[in-house]
Design a binder for these strands. Structure first.
Lengths: 226, 226
DNA sequence: AAAAATATGTTGAATTTTCAACAAATAGTG
DNA sequence: CACTATTTGTTGAAAATTCAACATATTTTT
Protein backbone atom coordinates (compact mmCIF):
# COMPACT_ATOMS: atom_id res chain seq x y z
CA UNK A 1 0.00 0.00 0.00
CA UNK A 2 2.67 2.48 1.01
CA UNK A 3 4.24 1.82 -2.35
CA UNK A 4 1.45 3.70 -4.08
CA UNK A 5 1.55 6.85 -2.04
CA UNK A 6 3.90 8.51 -4.47
CA UNK A 7 1.37 8.13 -7.24
CA UNK A 8 -1.48 9.24 -5.05
CA UNK A 9 0.28 12.37 -4.06
CA UNK A 10 0.01 13.48 -7.69
CA UNK A 11 -3.68 12.72 -7.92
CA UNK A 12 -6.01 15.71 -7.66
CA UNK A 13 -7.98 13.76 -5.07
CA UNK A 14 -5.07 13.99 -2.64
CA UNK A 15 -3.85 17.46 -3.60
CA UNK A 16 -2.69 19.45 -0.61
CA UNK A 17 -2.38 16.38 1.55
CA UNK A 18 1.12 15.54 2.72
CA UNK A 19 2.59 12.23 1.60
CA UNK A 20 3.03 11.13 5.18
CA UNK A 21 -0.63 11.43 5.95
CA UNK A 22 -1.88 9.46 2.99
CA UNK A 23 -1.40 5.95 4.43
CA UNK A 24 -3.39 6.80 7.54
CA UNK A 25 -6.08 8.42 5.43
CA UNK A 26 -6.39 5.38 3.20
CA UNK A 27 -6.99 3.26 6.25
CA UNK A 28 -9.53 5.68 7.59
CA UNK A 29 -11.33 5.73 4.26
CA UNK A 30 -11.29 1.96 3.89
CA UNK A 31 -9.45 2.20 0.58
CA UNK A 32 -8.42 -0.96 -1.21
CA UNK A 33 -6.15 -1.55 -4.16
CA UNK A 34 -7.12 -3.73 -7.07
CA UNK A 35 -4.84 -5.39 -9.60
CA UNK A 36 -6.67 -5.65 -12.90
CA UNK A 37 -5.64 -7.72 -15.88
CA UNK A 38 -6.22 -6.15 -19.29
CA UNK A 39 -9.86 -6.51 -20.21
CA UNK A 40 -11.14 -7.22 -16.72
CA UNK A 41 -14.01 -5.28 -15.18
CA UNK A 42 -13.30 -2.88 -12.32
CA UNK A 43 -16.88 -1.69 -11.86
CA UNK A 44 -19.78 -3.16 -13.82
CA UNK A 45 -23.10 -1.83 -15.05
CA UNK A 46 -25.66 -2.51 -12.35
CA UNK A 47 -23.16 -2.37 -9.48
CA UNK A 48 -24.17 0.03 -6.74
CA UNK A 49 -22.80 3.45 -7.63
CA UNK A 50 -20.89 3.99 -4.41
CA UNK A 51 -17.23 3.67 -5.35
CA UNK A 52 -14.82 6.03 -6.97
CA UNK A 53 -11.29 5.19 -7.97
CA UNK A 54 -7.83 6.48 -8.72
CA UNK A 55 -5.71 4.93 -11.46
CA UNK A 56 -2.36 3.99 -9.91
CA UNK A 57 -0.88 2.70 -13.13
CA UNK A 58 -2.03 1.32 -16.43
CA UNK A 59 -5.01 2.58 -18.36
CA UNK A 60 -8.75 2.15 -17.89
CA UNK A 61 -11.83 2.91 -19.95
CA UNK A 62 -15.37 3.93 -19.27
CA UNK A 63 -17.57 1.85 -21.58
CA UNK A 64 -21.21 2.53 -22.31
CA UNK A 65 -23.63 -0.20 -23.33
CA UNK A 66 -26.71 1.32 -24.90
CA UNK A 67 -30.29 0.12 -25.11
CA UNK A 68 -29.57 -1.82 -28.29
CA UNK A 69 -26.43 -3.46 -26.89
CA UNK A 70 -23.87 -1.32 -28.70
CA UNK A 71 -20.67 -0.76 -26.73
CA UNK A 72 -18.83 2.56 -26.97
CA UNK A 73 -15.83 4.01 -25.15
CA UNK A 74 -16.91 7.15 -23.34
CA UNK A 75 -13.61 8.08 -21.69
CA UNK A 76 -10.10 6.86 -20.94
CA UNK A 77 -8.18 7.46 -17.74
CA UNK A 78 -4.48 7.08 -16.94
CA UNK A 79 -2.24 7.26 -13.90
CA UNK A 80 -3.40 9.53 -11.07
CA UNK A 81 -6.74 10.27 -12.73
CA UNK A 82 -9.97 9.83 -10.82
CA UNK A 83 -12.96 7.89 -12.15
CA UNK A 84 -16.49 7.04 -11.11
CA UNK A 85 -16.75 10.11 -8.89
CA UNK A 86 -19.64 11.70 -10.77
CA UNK A 87 -21.75 8.58 -10.37
CA UNK A 88 -20.75 7.93 -6.78
CA UNK A 89 -21.47 11.51 -5.70
CA UNK A 90 -24.79 11.80 -7.48
CA UNK A 91 -27.76 9.96 -6.12
CA UNK A 92 -28.19 7.40 -8.88
CA UNK A 93 -28.44 3.93 -7.42
CA UNK A 94 -26.49 1.83 -9.91
CA UNK A 95 -23.69 2.31 -12.41
CA UNK A 96 -24.90 3.04 -15.96
CA UNK A 97 -21.47 2.24 -17.49
CA UNK A 98 -18.71 -0.33 -17.16
CA UNK A 99 -15.25 0.58 -15.95
CA UNK A 100 -12.71 -1.83 -17.46
CA UNK A 101 -8.93 -2.10 -17.56
CA UNK A 102 -7.69 -1.50 -21.12
CA UNK A 103 -4.18 -2.44 -19.99
CA UNK A 104 -2.91 -4.35 -16.98
CA UNK A 105 -3.60 -1.77 -14.32
CA UNK A 106 -3.80 -1.17 -10.62
CA UNK A 107 -6.39 1.09 -9.12
CA UNK A 108 -7.34 2.40 -5.72
CA UNK A 109 -11.01 2.05 -4.86
CA UNK A 110 -12.74 4.24 -2.30
CA UNK A 111 -16.25 4.33 -0.99
CA UNK A 112 -17.75 7.76 -1.64
CA UNK A 113 -19.83 7.70 1.53
CA UNK A 114 -16.74 7.25 3.66
CA UNK A 115 -15.35 10.37 2.05
CA UNK A 116 -18.43 12.55 2.26
CA UNK A 117 -19.32 11.56 5.78
CA UNK A 118 -16.70 12.93 8.10
CA UNK A 119 -15.20 10.06 10.06
CA UNK A 120 -15.51 9.77 13.82
CA UNK A 121 -11.84 10.43 14.52
CA UNK A 122 -12.14 13.61 12.42
CA UNK A 123 -8.77 13.33 10.74
CA UNK A 124 -7.25 16.62 9.78
CA UNK A 125 -7.22 16.11 6.05
CA UNK A 126 -10.72 14.83 5.69
CA UNK A 127 -12.04 18.27 4.93
CA UNK A 128 -9.36 18.68 2.27
CA UNK A 129 -10.32 15.51 0.43
CA UNK A 130 -14.00 16.49 0.38
CA UNK A 131 -12.97 19.85 -1.00
CA UNK A 132 -10.77 18.13 -3.62
CA UNK A 133 -13.61 15.83 -4.60
CA UNK A 134 -15.96 18.77 -5.06
CA UNK A 135 -13.38 20.51 -7.22
CA UNK A 136 -12.84 17.41 -9.36
CA UNK A 137 -16.54 16.93 -9.96
CA UNK A 138 -17.00 20.63 -10.75
CA UNK A 139 -14.06 20.59 -13.14
CA UNK A 140 -15.63 17.70 -15.00
CA UNK A 141 -18.87 19.65 -15.25
CA UNK A 142 -16.97 22.59 -16.71
CA UNK A 143 -15.26 20.37 -19.29
CA UNK A 144 -18.55 18.78 -20.28
CA UNK A 145 -20.18 22.18 -20.54
CA UNK A 146 -17.50 23.43 -22.89
CA UNK A 147 -17.83 20.36 -25.06
CA UNK A 148 -21.60 20.72 -25.24
CA UNK A 149 -21.11 24.32 -26.28
CA UNK A 150 -18.98 23.11 -29.15
CA UNK A 151 -20.82 20.05 -30.41
CA UNK A 152 -24.18 21.82 -30.17
CA UNK A 153 -23.22 23.87 -33.18
CA UNK A 154 -24.62 22.57 -36.46
CA UNK A 155 -21.71 22.99 -38.88
CA UNK A 156 -18.08 21.92 -38.77
CA UNK A 157 -17.05 25.53 -39.19
CA UNK A 158 -19.09 26.73 -36.22
CA UNK A 159 -17.89 23.87 -34.06
CA UNK A 160 -14.30 24.61 -34.90
CA UNK A 161 -14.61 28.35 -34.35
CA UNK A 162 -16.39 27.81 -31.04
CA UNK A 163 -13.64 25.48 -29.88
CA UNK A 164 -10.82 27.70 -31.12
CA UNK A 165 -12.49 30.72 -29.56
CA UNK A 166 -12.45 29.18 -26.09
CA UNK A 167 -8.84 28.10 -26.50
CA UNK A 168 -7.87 31.60 -27.63
CA UNK A 169 -9.64 33.11 -24.63
CA UNK A 170 -7.91 30.73 -22.25
CA UNK A 171 -4.57 31.36 -23.93
CA UNK A 172 -5.18 35.11 -23.90
CA UNK A 173 -3.74 35.22 -27.40
CA UNK A 174 -5.12 34.93 -30.94
CA UNK A 175 -2.28 32.55 -31.81
CA UNK A 176 -2.06 29.28 -29.89
CA UNK A 177 -1.38 25.57 -30.15
CA UNK A 178 -4.13 23.07 -29.46
CA UNK A 179 -3.40 19.76 -27.67
CA UNK A 180 -4.87 17.66 -30.48
CA UNK A 181 -3.81 16.39 -33.87
CA UNK A 182 -6.35 16.42 -36.69
CA UNK A 183 -7.91 13.08 -35.87
CA UNK A 184 -8.19 13.94 -32.18
CA UNK A 185 -9.64 17.35 -32.99
CA UNK A 186 -12.19 15.72 -35.30
CA UNK A 187 -13.08 13.28 -32.51
CA UNK A 188 -13.54 16.12 -30.03
CA UNK A 189 -15.68 18.12 -32.46
CA UNK A 190 -17.53 14.91 -33.40
CA UNK A 191 -17.01 15.40 -37.13
CA UNK A 192 -15.32 13.57 -39.96
CA UNK A 193 -11.56 14.09 -40.08
CA UNK A 194 -11.23 14.62 -43.82
CA UNK A 195 -14.18 16.98 -43.80
CA UNK A 196 -12.52 18.91 -41.00
CA UNK A 197 -9.26 19.14 -42.93
CA UNK A 198 -10.99 20.50 -45.99
CA UNK A 199 -13.03 22.95 -43.93
CA UNK A 200 -9.84 24.22 -42.30
CA UNK A 201 -8.40 24.63 -45.79
CA UNK A 202 -11.37 26.73 -46.88
CA UNK A 203 -11.28 28.87 -43.78
CA UNK A 204 -7.60 29.60 -44.35
CA UNK A 205 -8.29 30.66 -47.96
CA UNK A 206 -11.13 32.88 -46.75
CA UNK A 207 -8.76 34.53 -44.32
CA UNK A 208 -10.75 33.59 -41.20
CA UNK A 209 -7.94 31.64 -39.59
CA UNK A 210 -4.33 30.76 -40.11
CA UNK A 211 -3.34 27.18 -39.45
CA UNK A 212 -0.34 24.94 -39.57
CA UNK A 213 -0.88 21.55 -38.01
CA UNK A 214 -1.94 22.15 -34.41
CA UNK A 215 -1.03 25.82 -34.45
CA UNK A 216 -3.87 28.23 -35.12
CA UNK A 217 -4.37 31.96 -35.40
CA UNK A 218 -7.80 33.54 -35.26
CA UNK A 219 -8.16 36.49 -37.63
CA UNK A 220 -11.18 38.70 -38.28
CA UNK A 221 -11.97 39.22 -34.63
CA UNK A 222 -14.79 41.73 -34.31
CA UNK A 223 -13.93 44.92 -32.47
CA UNK A 224 -14.83 44.24 -28.86
CA UNK A 225 -18.57 44.74 -28.63
CA UNK A 226 -19.25 43.90 -25.06
CA UNK B 1 -35.17 37.09 4.73
CA UNK B 2 -37.35 34.76 6.72
CA UNK B 3 -39.92 35.22 4.04
CA UNK B 4 -37.82 33.20 1.61
CA UNK B 5 -37.26 30.18 3.78
CA UNK B 6 -40.25 28.41 2.37
CA UNK B 7 -38.78 28.58 -1.10
CA UNK B 8 -35.35 27.58 0.09
CA UNK B 9 -36.66 24.53 1.81
CA UNK B 10 -37.58 23.18 -1.62
CA UNK B 11 -34.18 23.89 -3.10
CA UNK B 12 -31.86 20.89 -3.44
CA UNK B 13 -29.16 22.98 -1.76
CA UNK B 14 -31.12 22.95 1.49
CA UNK B 15 -32.53 19.44 1.22
CA UNK B 16 -32.62 17.64 4.54
CA UNK B 17 -32.23 20.85 6.49
CA UNK B 18 -35.17 21.79 8.65
CA UNK B 19 -36.97 25.04 7.92
CA UNK B 20 -36.22 26.36 11.35
CA UNK B 21 -32.49 26.08 10.89
CA UNK B 22 -32.32 27.84 7.55
CA UNK B 23 -32.34 31.44 8.84
CA UNK B 24 -29.42 30.75 11.18
CA UNK B 25 -27.55 28.98 8.41
CA UNK B 26 -28.03 31.87 6.02
CA UNK B 27 -26.47 34.18 8.55
CA UNK B 28 -23.61 31.80 9.11
CA UNK B 29 -23.01 31.53 5.38
CA UNK B 30 -23.20 35.27 4.81
CA UNK B 31 -26.04 34.86 2.34
CA UNK B 32 -27.61 37.93 0.79
CA UNK B 33 -30.72 38.35 -1.30
CA UNK B 34 -30.79 40.34 -4.51
CA UNK B 35 -33.79 41.86 -6.24
CA UNK B 36 -33.19 41.88 -9.98
CA UNK B 37 -35.15 43.78 -12.58
CA UNK B 38 -35.72 41.98 -15.85
CA UNK B 39 -32.59 42.19 -17.98
CA UNK B 40 -30.24 43.15 -15.16
CA UNK B 41 -27.00 41.28 -14.52
CA UNK B 42 -26.70 39.08 -11.43
CA UNK B 43 -23.17 37.88 -12.11
CA UNK B 44 -21.08 39.16 -15.02
CA UNK B 45 -18.34 37.72 -17.18
CA UNK B 46 -15.05 38.53 -15.52
CA UNK B 47 -16.45 38.61 -11.98
CA UNK B 48 -14.58 36.39 -9.56
CA UNK B 49 -16.13 32.93 -9.73
CA UNK B 50 -16.88 32.62 -6.03
CA UNK B 51 -20.63 32.91 -5.74
CA UNK B 52 -23.41 30.50 -6.30
CA UNK B 53 -27.07 31.31 -6.13
CA UNK B 54 -30.57 30.02 -5.64
CA UNK B 55 -33.49 31.43 -7.61
CA UNK B 56 -36.14 32.51 -5.10
CA UNK B 57 -38.63 33.63 -7.73
CA UNK B 58 -38.64 34.76 -11.31
CA UNK B 59 -36.47 33.35 -14.03
CA UNK B 60 -32.78 33.76 -14.84
CA UNK B 61 -30.55 32.83 -17.75
CA UNK B 62 -26.95 31.81 -18.20
CA UNK B 63 -25.68 33.69 -21.25
CA UNK B 64 -22.48 32.94 -23.09
CA UNK B 65 -20.55 35.56 -25.03
CA UNK B 66 -18.15 33.91 -27.45
CA UNK B 67 -14.87 35.06 -28.92
CA UNK B 68 -16.63 36.79 -31.79
CA UNK B 69 -19.13 38.53 -29.54
CA UNK B 70 -22.14 36.32 -30.24
CA UNK B 71 -24.47 35.94 -27.28
CA UNK B 72 -26.29 32.64 -26.68
CA UNK B 73 -28.48 31.35 -23.88
CA UNK B 74 -26.84 28.32 -22.34
CA UNK B 75 -29.40 27.54 -19.65
CA UNK B 76 -32.47 28.85 -17.87
CA UNK B 77 -33.23 28.47 -14.17
CA UNK B 78 -36.45 28.96 -12.23
CA UNK B 79 -37.54 28.99 -8.61
CA UNK B 80 -35.49 26.89 -6.20
CA UNK B 81 -32.89 26.00 -8.80
CA UNK B 82 -29.21 26.52 -8.10
CA UNK B 83 -26.85 28.34 -10.47
CA UNK B 84 -23.17 29.19 -10.71
CA UNK B 85 -22.17 26.28 -8.49
CA UNK B 86 -20.05 24.53 -11.12
CA UNK B 87 -17.97 27.66 -11.63
CA UNK B 88 -17.72 28.54 -7.97
CA UNK B 89 -16.65 25.02 -6.97
CA UNK B 90 -14.09 24.58 -9.72
CA UNK B 91 -10.86 26.48 -9.54
CA UNK B 92 -11.40 28.85 -12.43
CA UNK B 93 -10.73 32.42 -11.38
CA UNK B 94 -13.41 34.35 -13.21
CA UNK B 95 -16.88 33.76 -14.60
CA UNK B 96 -16.91 32.80 -18.29
CA UNK B 97 -20.65 33.53 -18.64
CA UNK B 98 -23.17 36.14 -17.61
CA UNK B 99 -26.03 35.37 -15.27
CA UNK B 100 -28.96 37.71 -16.01
CA UNK B 101 -32.55 38.01 -14.90
CA UNK B 102 -34.89 37.22 -17.78
CA UNK B 103 -37.84 38.26 -15.63
CA UNK B 104 -38.05 40.38 -12.50
CA UNK B 105 -36.50 37.96 -10.02
CA UNK B 106 -35.08 37.59 -6.59
CA UNK B 107 -32.12 35.39 -5.88
CA UNK B 108 -30.09 34.29 -2.90
CA UNK B 109 -26.34 34.65 -3.33
CA UNK B 110 -23.85 32.60 -1.34
CA UNK B 111 -20.09 32.56 -1.27
CA UNK B 112 -18.88 29.06 -2.17
CA UNK B 113 -15.87 29.30 0.14
CA UNK B 114 -18.09 29.91 3.13
CA UNK B 115 -19.89 26.71 2.29
CA UNK B 116 -16.90 24.50 1.60
CA UNK B 117 -14.92 25.70 4.57
CA UNK B 118 -16.63 24.51 7.70
CA UNK B 119 -17.41 27.49 9.85
CA UNK B 120 -15.92 28.03 13.30
CA UNK B 121 -19.13 27.45 15.16
CA UNK B 122 -19.48 24.15 13.27
CA UNK B 123 -23.22 24.34 12.81
CA UNK B 124 -24.93 21.01 12.64
CA UNK B 125 -26.19 21.33 9.10
CA UNK B 126 -23.02 22.53 7.52
CA UNK B 127 -22.00 19.02 6.57
CA UNK B 128 -25.39 18.50 4.99
CA UNK B 129 -25.11 21.54 2.75
CA UNK B 130 -21.65 20.51 1.55
CA UNK B 131 -23.04 17.10 0.80
CA UNK B 132 -25.99 18.66 -1.05
CA UNK B 133 -23.67 20.86 -3.05
CA UNK B 134 -21.58 17.87 -4.08
CA UNK B 135 -24.69 16.04 -5.15
CA UNK B 136 -25.95 19.00 -7.18
CA UNK B 137 -22.65 19.40 -8.99
CA UNK B 138 -22.44 15.65 -9.65
CA UNK B 139 -26.01 15.56 -10.94
CA UNK B 140 -25.17 18.31 -13.38
CA UNK B 141 -22.17 16.31 -14.57
CA UNK B 142 -24.42 13.30 -15.14
CA UNK B 143 -26.91 15.37 -17.13
CA UNK B 144 -24.16 16.88 -19.25
CA UNK B 145 -22.67 13.43 -19.83
CA UNK B 146 -25.96 12.08 -21.07
CA UNK B 147 -26.42 14.99 -23.41
CA UNK B 148 -22.91 14.58 -24.81
CA UNK B 149 -23.69 10.92 -25.41
CA UNK B 150 -26.67 11.98 -27.46
CA UNK B 151 -25.39 14.93 -29.46
CA UNK B 152 -22.13 13.14 -30.24
CA UNK B 153 -24.01 10.91 -32.62
CA UNK B 154 -23.81 11.97 -36.25
CA UNK B 155 -27.35 11.45 -37.53
CA UNK B 156 -30.73 12.56 -36.28
CA UNK B 157 -31.81 8.93 -36.10
CA UNK B 158 -28.88 7.90 -33.92
CA UNK B 159 -29.32 10.91 -31.67
CA UNK B 160 -32.98 10.15 -31.21
CA UNK B 161 -32.46 6.44 -30.57
CA UNK B 162 -29.68 7.19 -28.08
CA UNK B 163 -31.91 9.61 -26.21
CA UNK B 164 -34.96 7.35 -26.30
CA UNK B 165 -32.82 4.41 -25.19
CA UNK B 166 -31.72 6.18 -22.03
CA UNK B 167 -35.27 7.26 -21.27
CA UNK B 168 -36.52 3.70 -21.79
CA UNK B 169 -33.84 2.38 -19.44
CA UNK B 170 -34.71 4.93 -16.79
CA UNK B 171 -38.41 4.22 -17.22
CA UNK B 172 -37.80 0.48 -17.17
CA UNK B 173 -40.31 0.15 -19.98
CA UNK B 174 -40.20 0.22 -23.76
CA UNK B 175 -43.18 2.56 -23.78
CA UNK B 176 -42.80 5.95 -22.13
CA UNK B 177 -43.57 9.65 -22.39
CA UNK B 178 -40.78 12.16 -22.80
CA UNK B 179 -40.90 15.57 -21.10
CA UNK B 180 -40.50 17.47 -24.37
CA UNK B 181 -42.67 18.52 -27.29
CA UNK B 182 -41.21 18.30 -30.80
CA UNK B 183 -39.49 21.65 -30.75
CA UNK B 184 -37.98 21.04 -27.33
CA UNK B 185 -36.85 17.57 -28.34
CA UNK B 186 -35.23 19.00 -31.46
CA UNK B 187 -33.49 21.62 -29.31
CA UNK B 188 -32.18 18.95 -26.93
CA UNK B 189 -30.96 16.77 -29.80
CA UNK B 190 -29.57 19.88 -31.51
CA UNK B 191 -31.29 19.17 -34.81
CA UNK B 192 -33.86 20.84 -37.04
CA UNK B 193 -37.43 20.34 -35.85
CA UNK B 194 -38.99 19.59 -39.23
CA UNK B 195 -36.18 17.18 -40.05
CA UNK B 196 -36.78 15.47 -36.74
CA UNK B 197 -40.50 15.16 -37.43
CA UNK B 198 -39.88 13.58 -40.80
CA UNK B 199 -37.22 11.23 -39.40
CA UNK B 200 -39.67 10.11 -36.71
CA UNK B 201 -42.19 9.49 -39.48
CA UNK B 202 -39.72 7.29 -41.37
CA UNK B 203 -38.76 5.34 -38.27
CA UNK B 204 -42.39 4.62 -37.55
CA UNK B 205 -42.92 3.33 -41.09
CA UNK B 206 -39.81 1.16 -40.76
CA UNK B 207 -41.21 -0.32 -37.58
CA UNK B 208 -38.32 0.83 -35.38
CA UNK B 209 -40.45 2.90 -33.05
CA UNK B 210 -44.05 3.78 -32.39
CA UNK B 211 -44.80 7.40 -31.68
CA UNK B 212 -47.72 9.66 -30.90
CA UNK B 213 -46.72 13.14 -29.85
CA UNK B 214 -44.51 12.76 -26.79
CA UNK B 215 -45.33 9.10 -26.29
CA UNK B 216 -42.85 6.64 -27.72
CA UNK B 217 -42.42 2.88 -27.89
CA UNK B 218 -39.11 1.28 -28.82
CA UNK B 219 -39.53 -1.83 -30.96
CA UNK B 220 -36.85 -4.06 -32.45
CA UNK B 221 -34.88 -4.38 -29.25
CA UNK B 222 -32.08 -6.88 -29.73
CA UNK B 223 -32.23 -9.98 -27.52
CA UNK B 224 -30.23 -9.07 -24.46
CA UNK B 225 -26.61 -9.56 -25.42
CA UNK B 226 -24.78 -8.46 -22.33
C1' DA C 1 19.75 8.84 -45.87
C1' DA C 2 16.34 5.65 -47.33
C1' DA C 3 12.31 3.23 -46.05
C1' DA C 4 8.30 2.75 -43.46
C1' DA C 5 4.75 4.48 -40.77
C1' DT C 6 1.86 8.06 -39.53
C1' DA C 7 -0.56 12.35 -40.18
C1' DT C 8 -2.72 15.63 -43.11
C1' DG C 9 -4.88 17.36 -47.32
C1' DT C 10 -7.91 16.74 -51.47
C1' DT C 11 -11.59 15.18 -54.22
C1' DG C 12 -16.24 13.71 -55.81
C1' DA C 13 -20.26 10.88 -54.99
C1' DA C 14 -23.74 9.48 -51.76
C1' DT C 15 -26.12 10.58 -47.75
C1' DT C 16 -28.04 13.61 -44.43
C1' DT C 17 -29.35 17.98 -42.67
C1' DT C 18 -31.15 22.37 -42.96
C1' DC C 19 -34.29 25.68 -44.52
C1' DA C 20 -38.52 27.64 -46.08
C1' DA C 21 -43.05 27.19 -47.06
C1' DC C 22 -47.11 25.14 -46.36
C1' DA C 23 -50.67 21.43 -44.80
C1' DA C 24 -52.81 18.98 -41.17
C1' DA C 25 -53.83 18.05 -36.48
C1' DT C 26 -54.51 19.44 -31.85
C1' DA C 27 -55.39 22.56 -28.05
C1' DG C 28 -57.29 26.68 -26.25
C1' DT C 29 -60.92 30.44 -26.09
C1' DG C 30 -64.95 33.06 -26.27
C1' DC D 1 -69.29 25.01 -31.46
C1' DA D 2 -66.75 27.93 -34.28
C1' DC D 3 -62.51 30.45 -34.32
C1' DT D 4 -57.82 31.12 -33.28
C1' DA D 5 -53.38 29.85 -31.93
C1' DT D 6 -50.13 26.39 -31.45
C1' DT D 7 -48.02 22.17 -32.53
C1' DT D 8 -46.78 18.67 -35.65
C1' DG D 9 -46.11 16.67 -40.23
C1' DT D 10 -44.70 17.02 -45.23
C1' DT D 11 -42.18 18.37 -49.10
C1' DG D 12 -38.35 19.67 -52.24
C1' DA D 13 -34.33 22.38 -53.01
C1' DA D 14 -30.00 23.98 -51.18
C1' DA D 15 -26.28 23.26 -48.17
C1' DA D 16 -23.32 20.45 -45.39
C1' DT D 17 -21.50 16.07 -43.90
C1' DT D 18 -19.83 11.62 -44.47
C1' DC D 19 -17.32 8.20 -46.79
C1' DA D 20 -13.85 6.12 -49.57
C1' DA D 21 -9.96 6.52 -52.07
C1' DC D 22 -5.91 8.52 -52.91
C1' DA D 23 -2.05 12.32 -52.83
C1' DT D 24 1.12 14.75 -50.14
C1' DA D 25 3.65 15.90 -46.06
C1' DT D 26 5.88 14.83 -41.84
C1' DT D 27 7.89 11.88 -38.45
C1' DT D 28 10.05 7.69 -37.00
C1' DT D 29 12.79 3.74 -37.69
C1' DT D 30 16.44 1.21 -39.48
Amino acid sequence: MKFFCNYLHESPLFAGISKNCIPAMLGCLGARTLECKKGSAIISIGDRAENLGVVLNGKIQMVNLDYYGNRSIVAEMESSQVFGEVFACSDIAVMPVDIVASEDSSVLLLNARRITQVCTNACTFHRQIIFNLLKIVAAKGLMFGQKINVVSKRTTREKLLTYLGTVAEQAGDDTFTIPYNRQELADYLEVDRSGLSSEIGKMCKEGIIRCHRSNFTLLHKQPDCR
